[in-house]
Amino acid sequence: MIIGNFVFKDFFFKTNKRKNNTLQCIYIFFLSLLLFYLYLKASKLELGFDFLTNEAGFALANQWLTDYTPTNNRIDAYVTGVFNTIRLVFVGIFLTTFLGVIIGIARLSSNWLVRKIATVYVEVIRNLPLLLQIIFWWSFTLALPTIKEYINLFDVILISNRGIALPTILFFENGSIIDFVRPVVTVAENTVVQYTAGFVISTEFLAILLGLVIYTASFIAEIVRGAIQALPKGQTEAAQALGLSTFQSLRLIILPQALRIIIPPVTNQYLNLTKNSSLAVVIGYSDLFLVSGIIMNKAGHAIPMFIIIILTYQSMSFLISLAMNYFNKKVALVGNR
Protein backbone atom coordinates (compact mmCIF):
# COMPACT_ATOMS: atom_id res chain seq x y z
CA MET A 1 0.00 0.00 0.00
CA ILE A 2 2.78 2.35 0.94
CA ILE A 3 4.69 1.38 -2.17
CA GLY A 4 1.57 1.83 -4.26
CA ASN A 5 0.98 5.26 -2.81
CA PHE A 6 4.58 6.18 -3.51
CA VAL A 7 4.30 5.03 -7.10
CA PHE A 8 1.14 7.02 -7.57
CA LYS A 9 2.75 10.14 -6.15
CA ASP A 10 5.87 9.61 -8.19
CA PHE A 11 3.95 9.17 -11.39
CA PHE A 12 1.87 12.30 -11.09
CA PHE A 13 3.59 14.80 -8.88
CA LYS A 14 7.29 14.17 -8.64
CA THR A 15 8.59 16.52 -11.28
CA ASN A 16 7.07 19.92 -11.60
CA LYS A 17 6.73 19.52 -15.35
CA ARG A 18 4.69 16.36 -15.10
CA LYS A 19 2.42 17.95 -12.50
CA ASN A 20 1.89 20.94 -14.74
CA ASN A 21 1.05 18.78 -17.73
CA THR A 22 -1.46 16.81 -15.69
CA LEU A 23 -3.09 19.99 -14.47
CA GLN A 24 -3.29 21.30 -18.02
CA CYS A 25 -4.78 18.07 -19.30
CA ILE A 26 -7.50 18.18 -16.65
CA TYR A 27 -8.13 21.84 -17.44
CA ILE A 28 -8.32 21.24 -21.18
CA PHE A 29 -10.64 18.28 -20.61
CA PHE A 30 -13.14 20.37 -18.65
CA LEU A 31 -12.79 23.34 -20.99
CA SER A 32 -13.50 21.19 -24.05
CA LEU A 33 -16.43 19.62 -22.22
CA LEU A 34 -17.85 23.11 -21.65
CA LEU A 35 -17.17 24.15 -25.25
CA PHE A 36 -18.73 20.96 -26.58
CA TYR A 37 -21.81 21.56 -24.46
CA LEU A 38 -22.06 25.16 -25.71
CA TYR A 39 -21.62 23.92 -29.28
CA LEU A 40 -24.42 21.37 -28.83
CA LYS A 41 -26.72 24.07 -27.46
CA ALA A 42 -25.73 26.61 -30.11
CA SER A 43 -26.08 24.18 -32.99
CA LYS A 44 -29.82 24.17 -32.36
CA LEU A 45 -29.77 27.89 -33.19
CA GLU A 46 -29.15 29.19 -36.70
CA LEU A 47 -25.44 29.50 -37.35
CA GLY A 48 -25.19 30.12 -41.11
CA PHE A 49 -24.40 33.45 -42.75
CA ASP A 50 -26.90 33.07 -45.66
CA PHE A 51 -29.46 35.36 -44.03
CA LEU A 52 -27.24 38.33 -44.86
CA THR A 53 -27.99 38.07 -48.59
CA ASN A 54 -31.75 38.47 -48.08
CA GLU A 55 -33.51 41.75 -48.75
CA ALA A 56 -33.15 44.13 -45.82
CA GLY A 57 -36.55 45.78 -45.97
CA PHE A 58 -35.90 48.62 -43.55
CA ALA A 59 -34.89 52.21 -44.15
CA LEU A 60 -31.90 53.90 -42.52
CA ALA A 61 -31.98 57.55 -41.51
CA ASN A 62 -28.32 58.39 -42.00
CA GLN A 63 -26.02 57.59 -44.86
CA TRP A 64 -22.53 58.50 -45.83
CA LEU A 65 -20.77 57.50 -49.09
CA THR A 66 -23.39 54.80 -49.71
CA ASP A 67 -26.73 54.81 -51.51
CA TYR A 68 -28.70 52.27 -49.57
CA THR A 69 -32.39 51.61 -50.15
CA PRO A 70 -34.63 49.11 -48.29
CA THR A 71 -34.54 46.81 -51.32
CA ASN A 72 -30.80 46.22 -50.94
CA ASN A 73 -29.62 43.13 -49.09
CA ARG A 74 -28.60 43.01 -45.44
CA ILE A 75 -24.87 43.17 -46.22
CA ASP A 76 -25.43 46.59 -47.81
CA ALA A 77 -27.37 47.69 -44.73
CA TYR A 78 -24.55 46.56 -42.47
CA VAL A 79 -21.92 48.27 -44.63
CA THR A 80 -23.96 51.50 -44.44
CA GLY A 81 -23.87 51.15 -40.66
CA VAL A 82 -20.12 50.56 -40.68
CA PHE A 83 -19.55 53.67 -42.81
CA ASN A 84 -21.71 55.72 -40.43
CA THR A 85 -19.67 54.47 -37.47
CA ILE A 86 -16.41 55.24 -39.25
CA ARG A 87 -17.56 58.79 -39.99
CA LEU A 88 -18.59 59.28 -36.37
CA VAL A 89 -15.35 57.86 -34.98
CA PHE A 90 -13.17 59.78 -37.42
CA VAL A 91 -14.76 63.18 -36.76
CA GLY A 92 -15.05 62.36 -33.05
CA ILE A 93 -11.37 61.51 -32.62
CA PHE A 94 -10.31 64.66 -34.42
CA LEU A 95 -12.52 67.00 -32.38
CA THR A 96 -12.00 65.27 -29.02
CA THR A 97 -8.22 65.51 -29.37
CA PHE A 98 -8.50 69.21 -30.14
CA LEU A 99 -10.83 69.95 -27.22
CA GLY A 100 -9.01 67.63 -24.82
CA VAL A 101 -5.60 69.22 -25.43
CA ILE A 102 -7.00 72.73 -25.01
CA ILE A 103 -8.70 71.84 -21.71
CA GLY A 104 -5.66 69.91 -20.48
CA ILE A 105 -3.49 72.98 -21.05
CA ALA A 106 -6.16 75.24 -19.52
CA ARG A 107 -6.06 73.13 -16.33
CA LEU A 108 -2.44 74.26 -15.88
CA SER A 109 -2.97 77.86 -16.94
CA SER A 110 -1.52 80.65 -14.82
CA ASN A 111 -4.91 82.31 -15.07
CA TRP A 112 -6.95 81.38 -11.99
CA LEU A 113 -10.37 81.61 -13.63
CA VAL A 114 -9.42 79.60 -16.72
CA ARG A 115 -7.90 76.94 -14.46
CA LYS A 116 -11.07 76.71 -12.35
CA ILE A 117 -13.38 76.52 -15.36
CA ALA A 118 -11.31 73.69 -16.84
CA THR A 119 -11.25 71.84 -13.51
CA VAL A 120 -15.02 72.12 -13.11
CA TYR A 121 -15.48 70.90 -16.69
CA VAL A 122 -13.33 67.82 -16.12
CA GLU A 123 -14.75 66.91 -12.71
CA VAL A 124 -18.35 67.31 -13.83
CA ILE A 125 -18.23 65.67 -17.25
CA ARG A 126 -16.04 62.71 -16.38
CA ASN A 127 -18.27 61.65 -13.46
CA LEU A 128 -21.53 61.63 -15.41
CA PRO A 129 -22.74 58.64 -17.44
CA LEU A 130 -22.07 59.05 -21.16
CA LEU A 131 -25.54 57.79 -22.02
CA LEU A 132 -27.13 60.54 -19.92
CA GLN A 133 -25.02 63.13 -21.72
CA ILE A 134 -25.94 61.78 -25.15
CA ILE A 135 -29.65 61.78 -24.30
CA PHE A 136 -29.30 65.30 -22.93
CA TRP A 137 -27.64 66.58 -26.13
CA TRP A 138 -30.29 64.83 -28.16
CA SER A 139 -33.05 66.62 -26.23
CA PHE A 140 -31.05 69.80 -26.73
CA THR A 141 -30.90 69.38 -30.51
CA LEU A 142 -34.57 68.49 -30.66
CA ALA A 143 -35.40 71.67 -28.75
CA LEU A 144 -33.86 73.81 -31.52
CA PRO A 145 -36.38 75.86 -33.54
CA THR A 146 -38.41 73.98 -36.13
CA ILE A 147 -37.35 74.11 -39.75
CA LYS A 148 -40.07 76.66 -40.54
CA GLU A 149 -38.46 79.10 -38.08
CA TYR A 150 -34.85 78.17 -38.78
CA ILE A 151 -31.95 80.26 -37.50
CA ASN A 152 -30.02 81.85 -40.34
CA LEU A 153 -26.38 82.75 -39.69
CA PHE A 154 -25.29 85.07 -42.56
CA ASP A 155 -26.91 82.73 -45.13
CA VAL A 156 -23.98 80.38 -44.55
CA ILE A 157 -25.16 78.19 -41.68
CA LEU A 158 -28.78 77.25 -41.16
CA ILE A 159 -29.81 75.73 -37.84
CA SER A 160 -33.04 73.92 -37.06
CA ASN A 161 -34.20 70.73 -35.37
CA ARG A 162 -33.75 68.91 -38.69
CA GLY A 163 -30.02 69.44 -38.42
CA ILE A 164 -27.39 72.00 -39.28
CA ALA A 165 -26.92 72.90 -42.95
CA LEU A 166 -23.47 74.06 -44.08
CA PRO A 167 -22.39 75.21 -47.55
CA THR A 168 -21.38 72.44 -49.94
CA ILE A 169 -17.95 72.76 -51.47
CA LEU A 170 -17.77 71.80 -55.14
CA PHE A 171 -14.47 71.14 -56.90
CA PHE A 172 -14.13 71.60 -60.68
CA GLU A 173 -17.80 72.19 -61.33
CA ASN A 174 -19.70 75.09 -62.85
CA GLY A 175 -16.53 76.20 -64.58
CA SER A 176 -14.59 77.19 -61.46
CA ILE A 177 -12.04 75.34 -59.36
CA ILE A 178 -13.78 75.77 -56.02
CA ASP A 179 -17.39 76.75 -55.69
CA PHE A 180 -19.58 77.12 -52.61
CA VAL A 181 -23.29 76.35 -52.69
CA ARG A 182 -25.26 78.06 -49.97
CA PRO A 183 -27.70 75.90 -48.01
CA VAL A 184 -31.35 76.51 -48.84
CA VAL A 185 -34.59 75.71 -47.09
CA THR A 186 -37.45 75.08 -49.50
CA VAL A 187 -41.16 74.98 -48.82
CA ALA A 188 -42.80 72.56 -51.21
CA GLU A 189 -46.44 72.79 -52.31
CA ASN A 190 -47.75 70.29 -49.79
CA THR A 191 -46.07 72.36 -47.04
CA VAL A 192 -43.21 69.90 -46.57
CA VAL A 193 -40.27 72.01 -45.47
CA GLN A 194 -36.78 70.65 -45.92
CA TYR A 195 -33.19 71.49 -46.74
CA THR A 196 -32.73 71.24 -50.46
CA ALA A 197 -29.12 72.34 -50.79
CA GLY A 198 -26.05 72.35 -48.61
CA PHE A 199 -24.23 69.83 -46.49
CA VAL A 200 -26.69 68.75 -43.80
CA ILE A 201 -25.49 67.41 -40.44
CA SER A 202 -28.37 65.47 -38.92
CA THR A 203 -29.45 66.05 -35.32
CA GLU A 204 -28.72 62.43 -34.40
CA PHE A 205 -25.17 62.75 -35.65
CA LEU A 206 -24.79 66.09 -33.88
CA ALA A 207 -26.08 64.74 -30.57
CA ILE A 208 -23.95 61.59 -30.50
CA LEU A 209 -20.92 63.57 -31.69
CA LEU A 210 -21.36 66.23 -28.98
CA GLY A 211 -21.81 63.55 -26.32
CA LEU A 212 -18.78 61.51 -27.37
CA VAL A 213 -16.48 64.48 -27.94
CA ILE A 214 -17.30 66.29 -24.70
CA TYR A 215 -17.08 63.10 -22.63
CA THR A 216 -13.85 61.75 -24.11
CA ALA A 217 -12.21 65.18 -24.08
CA SER A 218 -12.45 65.25 -20.28
CA PHE A 219 -10.37 62.07 -20.09
CA ILE A 220 -7.87 63.29 -22.69
CA ALA A 221 -7.54 66.56 -20.76
CA GLU A 222 -6.51 64.62 -17.65
CA ILE A 223 -3.94 62.64 -19.68
CA VAL A 224 -2.51 65.83 -21.19
CA ARG A 225 -2.34 67.53 -17.79
CA GLY A 226 -0.59 64.51 -16.25
CA ALA A 227 1.92 64.38 -19.11
CA ILE A 228 2.75 68.08 -18.91
CA GLN A 229 3.15 67.87 -15.14
CA ALA A 230 5.43 64.87 -15.54
CA LEU A 231 7.91 66.97 -17.54
CA PRO A 232 10.78 68.52 -15.57
CA LYS A 233 9.97 72.08 -14.58
CA GLY A 234 13.32 73.21 -15.99
CA GLN A 235 11.94 72.78 -19.51
CA THR A 236 9.36 75.54 -19.05
CA GLU A 237 11.84 77.73 -17.22
CA ALA A 238 14.45 77.28 -19.94
CA ALA A 239 11.88 78.18 -22.58
CA GLN A 240 11.02 81.33 -20.63
CA ALA A 241 14.71 82.15 -20.23
CA LEU A 242 15.15 81.87 -23.99
CA GLY A 243 12.45 84.49 -24.37
CA LEU A 244 9.85 82.24 -25.94
CA SER A 245 6.26 83.29 -25.52
CA THR A 246 3.78 81.04 -23.68
CA PHE A 247 2.38 79.78 -26.97
CA GLN A 248 5.83 79.20 -28.47
CA SER A 249 7.08 77.30 -25.44
CA LEU A 250 3.96 75.12 -25.51
CA ARG A 251 4.23 74.41 -29.22
CA LEU A 252 7.98 73.98 -29.47
CA ILE A 253 9.10 72.71 -26.05
CA ILE A 254 6.30 71.29 -23.91
CA LEU A 255 3.87 69.52 -26.23
CA PRO A 256 6.43 67.64 -28.36
CA GLN A 257 7.92 66.12 -25.21
CA ALA A 258 4.55 65.50 -23.55
CA LEU A 259 3.37 63.73 -26.72
CA ARG A 260 5.58 60.74 -25.89
CA ILE A 261 3.77 60.21 -22.60
CA ILE A 262 0.37 61.13 -24.03
CA ILE A 263 0.11 58.75 -26.99
CA PRO A 264 -0.34 55.30 -25.33
CA PRO A 265 -3.16 56.30 -22.92
CA VAL A 266 -4.81 58.47 -25.57
CA THR A 267 -4.87 55.47 -27.94
CA ASN A 268 -6.86 53.71 -25.24
CA GLN A 269 -9.31 56.61 -25.12
CA TYR A 270 -9.71 56.48 -28.92
CA LEU A 271 -10.59 52.79 -28.61
CA ASN A 272 -13.10 53.65 -25.88
CA LEU A 273 -14.62 56.29 -28.15
CA THR A 274 -14.92 53.73 -30.94
CA LYS A 275 -16.74 51.28 -28.67
CA ASN A 276 -18.86 54.01 -27.05
CA SER A 277 -20.06 55.06 -30.52
CA SER A 278 -22.40 52.05 -30.26
CA LEU A 279 -24.50 54.15 -27.84
CA ALA A 280 -25.79 55.89 -30.97
CA VAL A 281 -28.43 53.17 -30.82
CA VAL A 282 -30.43 55.05 -28.15
CA ILE A 283 -30.98 58.10 -30.31
CA GLY A 284 -31.44 56.28 -33.59
CA TYR A 285 -28.26 57.23 -35.44
CA SER A 286 -27.85 54.29 -37.83
CA ASP A 287 -24.43 53.05 -36.80
CA LEU A 288 -23.34 49.44 -37.20
CA PHE A 289 -24.79 48.34 -33.87
CA LEU A 290 -28.19 49.83 -34.59
CA VAL A 291 -28.27 48.15 -38.01
CA SER A 292 -27.21 44.78 -36.64
CA GLY A 293 -29.76 45.16 -33.84
CA ILE A 294 -32.50 45.64 -36.42
CA ILE A 295 -31.25 42.63 -38.39
CA MET A 296 -31.18 40.49 -35.22
CA ASN A 297 -34.70 41.58 -34.29
CA LYS A 298 -36.04 40.89 -37.78
CA ALA A 299 -34.20 37.71 -38.66
CA GLY A 300 -32.75 36.24 -35.46
CA HIS A 301 -29.29 34.72 -36.10
CA ALA A 302 -27.81 36.42 -33.02
CA ILE A 303 -24.61 34.37 -32.88
CA PRO A 304 -23.33 34.88 -36.46
CA MET A 305 -24.30 38.55 -36.32
CA PHE A 306 -22.40 38.84 -33.08
CA ILE A 307 -19.27 37.31 -34.56
CA ILE A 308 -19.46 39.93 -37.33
CA ILE A 309 -19.91 42.77 -34.80
CA ILE A 310 -16.93 41.62 -32.73
CA LEU A 311 -14.75 41.30 -35.84
CA THR A 312 -15.76 44.75 -37.10
CA TYR A 313 -15.05 46.52 -33.83
CA GLN A 314 -11.84 44.57 -33.37
CA SER A 315 -10.56 45.49 -36.85
CA MET A 316 -11.40 49.16 -36.27
CA SER A 317 -9.55 49.05 -32.95
CA PHE A 318 -6.66 47.29 -34.68
CA LEU A 319 -6.43 49.98 -37.37
CA ILE A 320 -6.47 52.78 -34.77
CA SER A 321 -3.79 51.05 -32.69
CA LEU A 322 -1.69 50.49 -35.80
CA ALA A 323 -1.87 54.17 -36.77
CA MET A 324 -1.13 55.31 -33.23
CA ASN A 325 1.81 52.90 -32.88
CA TYR A 326 3.27 54.28 -36.10
CA PHE A 327 2.80 57.79 -34.76
CA ASN A 328 4.30 56.76 -31.42
CA LYS A 329 7.43 55.47 -33.14
CA LYS A 330 7.75 58.79 -34.99
CA VAL A 331 7.79 60.84 -31.78
CA ALA A 332 9.78 58.39 -29.63
CA LEU A 333 13.22 59.45 -28.44
CA VAL A 334 15.85 58.44 -30.99
CA GLY A 335 17.68 56.29 -28.46
CA ASN A 336 14.52 54.41 -27.52
CA ARG A 337 13.42 53.48 -31.02
Binding site: K275, A302, I309
Partner: peptide, 11 residues
Amino acid sequence: RAAPLVAWLFF
Protein backbone atom coordinates in the same frame (compact mmCIF):
# COMPACT_ATOMS: atom_id res chain seq x y z
CA ARG B 1 -12.82 43.65 -24.76
CA ALA B 2 -13.46 43.55 -28.50
CA ALA B 3 -17.17 44.46 -28.35
CA PRO B 4 -18.85 47.28 -26.43
CA LEU B 5 -20.85 46.58 -23.27
CA VAL B 6 -24.17 47.45 -24.93
CA ALA B 7 -23.55 44.70 -27.44
CA TRP B 8 -22.83 42.17 -24.69
CA LEU B 9 -25.96 43.14 -22.79
CA PHE B 10 -27.99 42.71 -25.96
CA PHE B 11 -26.28 39.38 -26.61
